[in-house]
Design a protein around this nucleic acid. Structure first.
Length: 576
RNA sequence: CGGGGUGUAGCGCAGUCUGGUAGCGCACCUGGUUUGGGACCAGGGUGUCGGAGGUUCGAAUCCUCUCACCCCGACCA
């Protein structure tokens, strides 16, 4: 591409709306433009990146034996009603009516559609296993879209669905996708980690997320420093404590704690550690109040609570609801004498000598013995794993990371195939339900995650495999015939070699060209100027390095093409 | 959904408190000089002041309603 003809509107100034690096650089570099909250146009550079990511995904999915299809974005409500998700999915599902008044939704995921497709055709076990995938624009009406492509409402996703005869075969399909995902993310040049995860509203038995490690990530991950175990904190296993998390003993007595509403305030006031307090949380589970008890220094794992209660809607009680349920004010909530289910974290089993709220203004209770003073409904593991604590699987300890979820693989079992009756006849002529898996990749999110991991103050530093252009050629003096001729020749030769090359033939000063090249982030830059051309050399610089080197002008195209190919091969090798 | 904030030129912003007929930087257009890290000089204004209603002789500015976007939290494949 000749830059003079390209639609690449770069910006010197940082747009006011963008806070995250990947968002800032995608706008400044002329990759995307916003249309509405969480909805973007992809400009030529942005679209080239997306297409290159899609190509890698297609190659690896095809290699793993999956077949590409395309399902509709507009889905009739009946399919979603069949699985009950029309009711369950909530306001994230964008719903609308056609001219006849029939209900539709814009597909945020396609289990219903693919199962409907397969169940109509599937007859025999001989047709399995099969794996169908698509790359498609999805829409999820996020409450709060943010950070550009990291969390948009409309985004591009690759979703795949496997169908197997039994659980054993389904496990093989799962493993094959897991392996394909590792190759895909490695080829995209990402530093990532597969972690055990919650299955969320998709449902099913086991799942892994593929997390790109980045400070700006929204997900919290813990990984063991010794074994291979890594998990989302929503899911992370916690090693059973060998003794109660709070031990003190003593008599139950009232303590005056005027104005001390938080764990930190009470601990400081009473001169004890926050870990000697019990945190009492009141949640509304489908309009029923429940209480959760945790050690004062721990955080609730809401996913675990949701699983425990089976509630569709679960949120912290508002002030009025809380007062009604406990009879006391916010800040002094406690479990002694309350009339509602009380779930205590496993760590509190046998706890004594603890401090809790007294359900009356400016008062706490000390010397609480859970077994003696509180009617605990059940002891369950309800807290989040924390960095530094012992690994549940080995003798190591947890380390915490921030991650961007770019892929997720689910072992679904029959949660969709059963209610939708997706069946086949086995060897004995007996009807069986297909065992499923589903596998997602956020194509547009990969682009954002790659930038989060690969940038500096000046702009993006693309991995070779997904860069919009692999090489950029900069003629530094556009009024110098020799320079222009050499640049044009190199440009044509690189095109002949199959290299994706951007020729900056604009009548701009060298400084402007360097700045734009850095911003756009093309991995390899060839500067052609009077200075070096006189000595028969060109200046080659990797975007990721600070120093340039000179290469002979003679045969430069072949040498550059080889560097590009070697770099892509290196990334490919990383996933093997 | 709760809390906070912002809408004025393509982009970044000032002007709003205290009402008086819209401005700065960058970008852009014309001419000239420049050319190895976002050049300089001269000239040019490109605007339903987010929208609707109201108060007023007069509204970017005051009042009411409304829309959009951003941030924090909650929520979430």
């Amino acid at each position: 591409m000749r830059y003079s003809k390209a639609f690449v509107p770069t910006l010197k100034e940082v747009p006011a709306d963008a806070k995250v690096d990947s968002h800032v650089f995608m706008i400044r570099g002329g990759y995307i433009r916003q249309v509405a909250a969480g909805v973007y146009n992809f400009l030529p550079l942005g679209w080239r990146v997306i297409q290159r990511i899609e190509t890698i995904v297609r190659e690896e999915m095809d290699r793993a034996g999956a077949q590409e299809i395309l399902m509709p974005a507009a889905i009739p409500a009946e399919l979603w009603q069949e699985t009950g998700r029309w009711q369950k999915y909530g306001p994230e599902l964008l719903r609308f009516k056609d001219r006849h008044g029939a209900d539709y939704c814009f597909g945020p995921t396609h289990e219903e559609v693919v199962v409907d497709l397969v169940r109509r055709e599937l007859k025999s076990y001989r047709e399995l296993p099969t794996n169908l995938y698509q790359i498609q624009g999805k829409f999820r009406d996020e409450r709060r879209p943010r950070a550009g492509l990291m969390r948009g409402r409309e985004f591009i996703m690759k979703d795949a669905y496997s169908f197997d005869v039994d659980a054993e075969s389904a496990a093989k399909s799962y493993d094959s996708m897991y392996a394909a995902y590792k190759r895909i993310f490695a080829r995209c040049g990402l530093d990532f980690r597969p972690v055990e995860a919650d299955t969320g509203s998709i449902g099913g038995a086991k799942s892994h997320e593929f997390q790109v490690l980045a400070e700006s990530g929204e997900d919290n991950i813990v990984a063991c420093d010794t074994c291979e175990y890594a998990a989302n904190v929503e899911q992370a296993a916690i090693r059973a404590a060998s003794e109660p998390g709070i031990q003190g003993g003593g008599e139950l007595s009232k303590v005056s704690t005027p104005g001390k509403k938080t764990i930190a305030d009470v601990a400081a006031f009473m001169k004890i550690a926050p870990s000697s307090l019990i945190k009492s949380l009141v949640y509304m589970a489908d309009d029923k109040a429940i209480m959760v008890l945790l050690r004062g220094d721990r955080s609730l794992n809401e996913i675990a609570l949701k699983k425990l209660t089976g509630a569709t809607e679960l949120f912290p009680a508002r002030e009025g609801q809380l007062q009604k349920a406990t009879g006391g004010p916010v800040g002094f909530v406690g479990p002694v004498g309350v009339d509602m289910p009380v779930y205590a974290d496993m760590e509190l089993k046998g706890a004594s000598g603890a401090v809790v709220g007294a359900n009356s203004m400016d008062t706490h209770l000390s010397g609480v013995d859970l077994a003696r003073d509180v009617k605990v409904t059940e002891y369950v593991s309800l807290r989040q794993a924390e960095p530094g604590e012992p690994c549940a699987r080995c003798e190591g300890h947890y380390v915490s990371y921030k991650g961007i979820e770019v892929g997720h693989v689910f072992s679904l079992g029959t949660v969709y195939s059963q209610p939708m009756n997706c069946s086949f006849l086995d060897e004995n002529g007996k009807s069986q339900i297909a065992v499923m898996g589903c596998y997602g990749i956020g194509i547009t999110r990969i682009a954002a995650a790659a930038i989060e991991q690969n940038h500096d103050k000046g702009g993006i530093i693309w991995p070779m495999s997904i860069a919009p252009y692999e090489v950029t050629v900069l003629p530094l003096q556009t009024n110098d015939e020799e320079v222009v001729r050499a640049a044009n020749e190199l440009y044509e030769s690189l095109l002949d070699q199959g290299v994706a090359v951007l020729l900056d033939d604009r009548d701009e000063r060298p400084g402007a060209k360097f700045k734009d090249a850095d911003l756009i982030g093309v991995p390899l830059r060839i500067a052609i100027g009077k200075r070096s051309l006189g000595e028969g050399t060109l200046e080659l610089k990797w975007r990721r390095e600070s120093e340039s080197s000179n290469i002979p002008a003679q045969g430069a195209a072949q040498a550059i093409a080889k560097l590009v190919a070697d770099e892509k091969a290196r990334l490919r090798g990383a996933g093997a």
